[in-house]
């Protein structure tokens, strides 16, 4: 088991190396792919190091990253503050669901991005426009999964609590909110994924800093290497944040990790 796992990791690393070699070969000077369309790996690396130290269109790379993270985490956090309580309440009180859900269903099929022009018109191109678009993008997964979390609770637990004399409020806080935790972690991950990808688009359309802003400027200035640095950073940060949430699950709801399917 362990040995095959090592083999797998080794083969994976080998494949990555192979692709880098193929990439370098394709983009070599005089190679089949002109570097204007796709830069060589060493150029991308050099640009990455350079951007880390010297500002590109206004800020250094760490500052662009911080600008993006600030917007995405604010929008995602605000959506959590609204989505989790509302989702749980909607699942708990039928009437609230009947009242709120139709409106929500009306908004849900609209891609979050479609709100960008509207928020720009209403709020200008400042942070608040981007935060509100990220908020909309993150709200849907937060709310849907919070509802799902309550619905998927084992009836037996509720009945057991009731038999032991717990009142409605105790059941909600002690049983529902806790058993819902693992699903909420999944919700956090989905919401963050949706928020992150929407943020990138929002930054392409209206921003003065951030990774999406770097990407779109690089594209206009034909700095393909900068563009690739920005894309890689967007991907790596996305993976990193998802990973962090996965770790939180170990810490917040350790019982859910045991025996859970890992992939």
């Amino acid at each position: 088991m362990d040995q095959s796992r090592t083999l797998q990791v080794a083969a994976g690393l080998g494949a990555v190396l192979a692709w880098i070699v193929i990439w370098a070969w394709l983009t070599r000077p005089g190679g089949p792919v002109p570097t204007l369309y796709f830069p060589a790996p060493d150029d991308v690396w050099a640009k990455f190091v350079r951007m880390w130290q010297r500002p590109y269109i206004g800020s250094t790379l760490p500052n662009h990253i911080l600008a993006s993270l600030y917007i995405v985490l604010t929008g995602w956090g605000l959506a959590a503050l609204v989505g989790i309580p509302l989702g749980i309440a909607m699942a708990w009180w039928k009437r609230l669901k009947w009242i709120v859900f139709p409106t929500f269903q009306l908004i849900r099929p609209v891609p979050p991005l479609a709100w960008i022009p509207l928020t720009i018109l209403w709020l200008g191109i400042g942070d608040s426009a981007r935060i509100s678009v990220v908020f909309i993008a993150a709200l849907v997964p937060w709310l849907m999964n919070s509802m799902l979390a309550v619905y998927s609770i084992d009836r037996l637990l509720l009945d057991a609590a009731k038999t032991l004399g717990a009142n409605d409020r105790q059941i909600l806080t002690r049983v529902v909110c806790r058993t819902a935790l693992p699903t909420l972690v999944a919700a956090a991950r989905m919401a963050l994924g949706s928020a992150w990808s929407t943020l990138v688009a929002a930054e392409i359309l209206a921003a003065t800093a951030g990774l999406g802003y770097v990407a779109v400027n690089a594209s206009q200035l034909l700095d393909t290497d900068v563009l690739l640095v920005a894309m890689f950073m967007i991907g790596i940060l996305g993976i990193g944040m998802t990973g962090l949430i996965g770790l939180t699950q170990n810490w917040l709801a350790p019982w859910s990790v045991l025996g859970a399917r890992r992939d």
């Binding site: 494949a15 990808s197 779109v216 594209s219 034909l222 393909t224 890689f232 996305g238």
Partner: peptide, 24 residues
């Protein structure tokens, strides 16, 4: 194993981040 790195790259970079590249 061989194709996976490229696939993961496409998978983990949000589609919108490809817009500037596609334009280029």
């Amino acid at each position: 194993t061989f194709v996976n790195p490229v696939f993961e790259l496409i998978h983990f970079i949000p589609p919108f981040a490809y817009i500037p590249l596609a334009v280029l």
